[in-house]
Amino acid sequence: MTAPNGQYAYYPGCSLKASASAYERSAMAVLERLELRFVEIDDWNCCGATEYFSLNRLPAYSLVARNLALAAAQPTHELVAPCSACYLNLRKTDDHMRQEPKLKEQVNRALAAGGLHYEPGTLRVRHLLDVIIDDVGYEAIAAKVTRPLAGLRVAPYYGCLVVRPFESDDPEYPTHMDRLLEVLGATVVDFPMKAHCCGGHMTQISEDTAFELIRRILHNAAAYQADVIVTVCPMCQLNLDAYQGNVNRRFGTAFNLPVLYFTQMMGLAFGLQPEALGIGSELVPAQAALNKIGQVPAETPRHTPKRRDKDALPMPSRQRR
């Protein structure tokens, strides 16, 4: 546990109070099991998503900095966000204020108009996934598993902002959630598109762009015979889940891939009831897939020759030198 006094400042972000309420419900249920204490920042505001930075950078930084200033008043230096976009904005603002003295000065001048101040570097901004994996650890999580997700083939979908540009794991081929899901007993499929883009706000602006990006991810998860896609971000969940029908219509495909949050998977493995985890609020229903838990999983399709196939050349290990 790296947080002093085991407490974390919690920044939910707007989605978790609306379209991603299932994420918050399941996260809170899981955190209780893991005995992590999250204290919601009082009167937090929106992080501006990707929109505010496009228009006017100083108000955008100031908007985010208000949250940092409010969080810094709490008796902890750990600030946690479950939404990847919120996490990035909070962390980017802290980082850029640290890098650029002029920005720090200007943002603090704006904050002063509201009687606030933020000293960059005060908080350590983290994503919920990183907190659970790094501070709790695989072993402690494994100890809480009462109903392993055996038989379920899951595609771990990280999306962009949890691993880029601030690298909490490899920015190209992260694996820390893979290991988490394995600890929960699931079969994790190789998933080359795991850190590719879900389309972000393009679903609102340019469907041509967004639906193709969503299609690629669904296509890849289906090709690797995943039963469920697991996400760490409300935007990713929304795009892959809510627009799956549109994608099917546009491309004549028949994807039927439920998209759940990693906290929902943890809750299921901890033996919590699906309803308590907000399962059922996804637009592509997950129940049929979840019924596979406990059954014998389908065999993983082989993509690489075995080391001792008669004629085959040795396959290099994945381990770096």
């Binding site: 505001n45 006017n56 908007l63 001048r109 509201g114």
Partner: peptide
Amino acid sequence: SIRNMPQLTAILTEAKRIA
């Protein structure tokens, strides 16, 4: 809505003024 809208408005107004 957040409770302290006046505070946020003051911050954003000042930020826009500086910008």
